[in-house]
C-alpha cells in the first residue's frame, strides 16, 4: 500500500540544521465506513486499523452509541479500559523491541521468550495471563531495573538521563473541545493536519506524563505506562482515569469519542442516518499530531548535536521510534561541511 512518512534531516558539524517531514498517510481510509450498518463498524475499524485495533473499535463503538443517543454503562467502560490497557502494554513492548532491533540492540533468547510471552498475554481475549512474570524477566516489575536488565540496557542505549530538554506541550483531555470543533468544522482536512492556536502539541506516553523532551525520558515514560497498565489490569481497571474515554455529541448531533490509545489520544466523529447506516466517519489518529509537517518531531530536531554518520542516523531513528509512528517511514540524512 502506498503511503507513509519521509523525513529529511540536514546535518552540519554534527548538529541538525534543518528537518522536513512529508506525509502521504492515507487519512481518508475511514470513508470506507460510510454507508455501512453502524453495528458492523466497530469490528471493521478494528480490522482496518490493525495496529491499534482495539482502541479504534472502542472509539467507534462509543462514538456510534453517542450518535444514536445511547449511554455508556459502567461495565462497558471498565471492559473498554481493560482492552485499552492490554493493547497499551503490547504495543509499547512491540514498538520498543522493533525500533531497538532495527538499531542493532541485542535482546537475549530468554528476553525474546519473555517478550513473546508478554505479547501473547496481551492479545485480544488473553486477559493478561502470565504478563507479570514475563515483564519481570525484562526488568519491568516495579522495582528499579537492574543494570543488566533489558529495560535498563535499553534506557542506556537511548541516551543520558538529563540533557537540558524542556517540558513537552502535551495534548490533553482539556483540548478535546477545540479538537472536536476542528473536526466538526473541517472533517478530514482537520484530521489530516490538526492544529491548535500557537501550539505544536504531541500526544502519547510523554505527553500523558508531562515529562521533559529528553529521549531517555520518552522511553522511561513508555516503560512507566507499561507498568501502570499492567497494574491496572491486575486491579481490574478500578483505577483508570476517567479521561481514558470521553464521548458525547456535537452541536450537529454527531457522536464523538476520544480514547487514550497506545500512541496517544485518538478521536472518532460519526453520524448515523435514520436507517442505522453511517453517514459520516472521521478518524484523527495520534500520528497526525506527532508527525505533523510543522509538529513536535520536526521542531525537536534542529539544534540537536548528534555527531556524524551512523551515530547521527541511529540517534535520529531512536527519536523517531520514540515518537512512535504507526506507519512506515524513510529517512534521508545529508551531511554538509563542518560549521
Amino acid at each position: 500500500m502506498k503511503g507513509g512518512l519521509h523525513l529529511e534531516v540536514a546535518l552540519s558539524g554534527g548538529v541538525v540544521r534543518s528537518a522536513q517531514l512529508r506525509s502521504r498517510r492515507p487519512v481518508s481510509l475511514c470513508r470506507a465506513m460510510v454507508g455501512r450498518p453502524a453495528a458492523d463498524v466497530p469490528a471493521a475499524v478494528e480490522r482496518l486499523y490493525a495496529l491499534c485495533g482495539r482502541s479504534h473499535r472502542i472509539a467507534a463503538r462509543f462514538a456510534l452509541d453517542a450518535a444514536r443517543g445511547r449511554t455508556m454503562t459502567e461495565a462497558a467502560r471498565r471492559e473498554a479500559v481493560r482492552d485499552l490497557a492490554t493493547e497499551r502494554v503490547g504495543e509499547h513492548l512491540r514498538s520498543t523491541f522493533t525500533t531497538a532491533a532495527g538499531l542493532g540492540f541485542a535482546t537475549t533468547p530468554v528476553e525474546k521468550d519473555a517478550l513473546r510471552a508478554a505479547l501473547i498475554a496481551t492479545r485480544p481475549g488473553a486477559k493478561g495471563a502470565g504478563l507479570a512474570s514475563a515483564l519481570a524477566v525484562l526488568g519491568l516489575d516495579g522495582a528499579p531495573p537492574a543494570p543488566a536488565s533489558w529495560t535498563m540496557r535499553m534506557l542506556d542505549a537511548v541516551g543520558p538521563e538529563a540533557d537540558g530538554a524542556g517540558p513537552v506541550d502535551g495534548l490533553s483531555p482539556a483540548d478535546d473541545p477545540a479538537v472536536l470543533a476542528g473536526l466538526a468544522g473541517s472533517g478530514l482536512a482537520y484530521a489530516a493536519l490538526p492544529h491548535l492556536p500557537l501550539r505544536r502539541p504531541e500526544t502519547g506516553p510523554l505527553a500523558r506524563s508531562f515529562g521533559t523532551a529528553a529521549p531517555r525520558d520518552r522511553l522511561a515514560a513508555r516503560f512507566a505506562e507499561i507498568l501502570q497498565a499492567a497494574t491496572l489490569l491486575h486491579n481490574d481497571a478500578e483505577e483508570a482515569p476517567k479521561s481514558w474515554i470521553a464521548r458525547g455529541t456535537l452541536l450537529d448531533g454527531s457522536g464523538f469519542a476520544a480514547v487514550e490509545s497506545p500512541r496517544g489520544r485518538l478521536y472518532h466523529v460519526t453520524a448515523v442516518d435514520t436507517q442505522g447506516r453511517v453517514a459520516r466517519f472521521v478518524v484523527l489518529a495520534p500520528t497526525e499530531w506527532n508527525f505533523h509537517p510543522d509538529g513536535p518531531l520536526v521542531h525537536a530536531l534542529p539544534g540537536l548535536r548528534l555527531g556524524t554518520g551512523t551515530a547521527a542516523e541511529e540517534r535520529i531513528r531512536w527519536l523517531v521510534g520514540l515518537f512512535d509512528p504507526c506507519v512506515a517511514y524513510t529517512l534521508d540524512l545529508t551531511e554538509g561541511a563542518d560549521a
Partner: peptide
C-alpha cells in the same frame, strides 16, 4: 476491506 478503503481514499484527496 483494505481494497474498499483504498478505493474510498483514492476518491478523496486530502
Amino acid at each position: 476491506l483494505l481494497d474498499e478503503a483504498i478505493a474510498a481514499h483514492d476518491g478523496v484527496p486530502v
